[in-house]
Design a binder for these strands. Structure first.
Lengths: 231, 231
DNA sequence: TAGATTGTTAATCGATTAACAATC
DNA sequence: TAGATTGTTAATCGATTAACAATC
């Protein structure tokens, strides 16, 4: 079995630039690849072929190779892909090594649920604070995360160079809170309010979560039973 | 302005059957149409053209007409669409009139957050119970919803003819809990565990929510700033 | 009737799959 | 070297957009 370092050396010289326009369909699949590769690492797998990975994920091997090649050659002909290396590279693409900093605005049930998970840190995203309007909880900590007044949101984001704002406030407040953050240099909004948030700042990326829409999609499939599977 | 009843009469005779294979892309857009039409109703709008709706949603008018025509003619040439009527029809397609019954399994932070929302009832889905393994909360109510022991899950689902199971248990428990529900006649699983749940029962529909994947997608876009907008 | 706007067909675009030459 | 498997091009499939005839 060849030395991994040797293989990496070979890899490095072949890695091309990311293609100009990576299809959004590809980007949406990257986190899934990353998750499965993480599991393979835990299982102690060293290498994997696109064929084997395709069986695991239930997609075609062709698609996997095509997808990965949007970012340059991560594999090696005749060998396949080095699991750890590929996991690391996809992680880099997804920004886990960027040290993104985030705050959660809205310490209601959903905000608390997000404060309780390890979802952020597991992906290299640091949670700095919660913000809320309820004076009873301002100044306390929730799952170790300090809670501040929403009045301080803008100043905090600017001072702490917050990258991402998580929005779990009521729909009515979503826009104004997002606006405050955008003006304070926040570059990404993860929006759980049940609406499409659109901001007048094209440089700010918005990712909308629509749990209700997902529930309805499931209901549709239940109604027309025998329909299509999976998400 | 014509009587709405007259228009409905005209509509009814033209409504065709749902086309054999509705593209999943179309199904995913239906909840969004439904939401915006609900807002238009609240604003008192009676009718709308595909052109106007397209501007509101930021999609092409062509797509809206094409999408709606998968389910038959909901509009009227020269007039447009009757807002209330279209909202109702899409709601029917999405099962809001079916009276689906659901239970939430896992009364952790996310389970509680789901217990607190009005998301379900607003979409015609009834929440019957929470299930958990923690003896401290079994027998109590959370936001008015009774909490039972997970031991009783199967019997409860069978007896109460539960349609949908919401899974907010740890990843490790997800499969076995889903299996119990599927055997007890549950036809849909809304899965929040961070994994693709695949069950050996093809008749059971599974909708996976991957919050972590969504966060990573946002991080990707932040990294390659100037990239694609929206979800 | 004339004007408006749908429903629907045809054209375009993008994404997935298949095939195979390059190469480790 | 021979075998395996990638990277990549070409073919297929599906989804979106454009155009327009049907019709209210």
């Amino acid at each position: 079995m060849e030395s991994i370092d040797k293989i990496h050396g070979t890899f490095e010289k072949r890695i091309a630039e990311t293609k100009a326009n990576v299809p959004t369909a590809v980007i949406k699949r990257l986190p899934r690849y990353h998750r499965y590769l993480g599991e393979l690492i835990r299982e102690g797998r060293m290498r994997i072929s696109s064929a084997e990975l395709s069986e695991l994920l239930g997609v075609t091997a062709s698609q996997i190779r095509q997808d990965l090649n949007c970012f340059g050659g991560f594999g090696q002909q005749g060998y396949g892909y080095n699991v750890k290396y590929l996991h690391g590279k996809i992680g880099e693409l997804l920004g886990v090594t960027e040290g993104f900093r985030t705050v959660i605005v809205g310490a209601g049930n959903l905000g608390r649920a997000l404060a309780a998970t390890h979802m952020f840190e597991r992906r290299g995203v640091e949670r700095l604070a919660l913000f809320d309007v309820n004076p009873d909880i301002i100044g306390t900590k929730i799952y170790g995360i300090p809670v501040y007044s929403t009045d301080e949101l803008g100043e905090f984001c600017r001072r702490e160079r917050v990258d991402i704002g998580v929005l779990t406030v009521p729909k009515e407040a979503a826009f104004s809170v997002a606006d405050v953050m955008a003006r304070a240099g926040v570059r990404g909004i993860w929006n759980f309010a049940n609406m499409e948030l659109s901001l007048p700042y094209p440089e700010v990326e918005v990712e909308n979560i629509h749990l209700g829409d997902s529930l309805m999609t499931l209901c549709y499939r239940l109604k027309s039973a025998g329909g299509a599977e999976e998400d």
